[in-house]
């Protein structure tokens, strides 16, 4: 656990941002990842008093406050109705319920972890990160950027008709994924994200002009091959690069079938 000279429950994002400019201060969200560090902090910046744990639906979007827990999102019926039930598949294997009752959406997105189910899932939707200083940026851009001292206030997901489908492969149920895979089905084409390669997730797009809406079994296999070939893979303690690539293809094929794209 880190040590801190002061623990400050901030009253505004303004205060959080100001304090977060000092390298010796750090934001505490769910504290699940942060507690593993042994850093000596001057100030721990607690966001829990900002009422930023909301999930708000408007006509055009969902706004998810940075302090919304993974469990609250997983159980949110309106979100699942809009983007499909696989939100619980994406979040439901992350350790246990007690863990997800504390871990936050903001902390998960800020981390941009290679193993992140959260990042892989949100990349196939039309997702934006609302930052205190830099404003609203697309998640794909944020995911590729370096860590800085800005503060995530909320995540915004546009309701553009997309549905998200999710699968992961784990050696044991609550471990980090060996591969995480998601497909976002849009009216013009499909978005594919593969994460835990073990590098962090990226997203690619395949238009229906290239790979049509309805596919034969052979076409599904070749689209899955195309997707798995579009990413690079590495080796770590959980799996080798070659095996990861194979599993990416298997999961993509399963996901495509789940989307109901098979020709009758």
């Amino acid at each position: 656990m880190f040590t801190a000279n002061e623990y400050i429950k901030v009253k505004s994002f303004d205060e959080a941002y100001e304090l977060n400019q000092k390298r010796t201060n750090k934001i505490v969200a769910g504290n699940m990842m942060l507690r593993l560090s042994h850093r000596k902090l001057n100030k721990a910046i607690d966001l829990s008093g900002l009422e930023a744990d909301y999930i708000l639906e408007t006509e055009s979007e969902f706004k998810i406050g940075c302090m919304c827990t993974l469990r609250d999102l997983e159980k949110n019926e309106a979100f699942a109705k809009c983007f499909g039930p696989d939100i619980s598949e994406a979040l439901g294997h992350i350790v246990g319920v007690q863990f997800r009752n504390s871990a936050t959406v903001g902390g998960s997105i800020f981390g941009r972890f290679g193993f992140s189910d959260v990042l892989t899932y949100f990349l196939v939707l039309d997702t934006y990160v609302n930052l205190y200083k830099d404003g609203i940026v697309p998640l794909s851009e944020y995911a590729a950027s370096d860590y800085d001292n800005d503060v995530i206030m909320e995540i915004i997901v546009n309701k553009d008709g997309r549905k998200a489908y999710y699968e992961s492969f784990r050696l044991t149920d609550t471990d980090f994924p060996v591969i995480s895979a998601a497909v976002g089905v849009h009216k013009k084409g499909r978005f594919f994200a593969i994460g835990a390669r073990p590098a962090k997730a990226r997203v690619i797009y395949a238009d229906y002009s290239e790979f049509p809406e309805k596919l034969s079994p052979n076409e599904i296999a070749s689209l899955a091959e195309y997707v798995s070939e579009s990413f690079n893979y590495g080796t770590n303690i959980r799996a080798g690069a070659g095996y990861r690539k194979h599993i990416a293809k298997v999961l993509t094929e399963r996901l495509l079938k789940k989307t109901g794209c098979e020709k009758p």
């Binding site: 623990y7 699940m32 607690d46 469990r71 007690q98 863990f99 009752n101 504390s102």
Partner: peptide, 20 residues
């Protein structure tokens, strides 16, 4: 999960919750 407690009606891991 050994450190599980209930805080405001939800189970949480007390080994990660700041006392503050």
């Amino acid at each position: 999960g050994l450190c599980t407690i209930i805080m405001d009606n939800k189970s949480v891991l007390s080994c990660s919750v700041p006392a503050a």
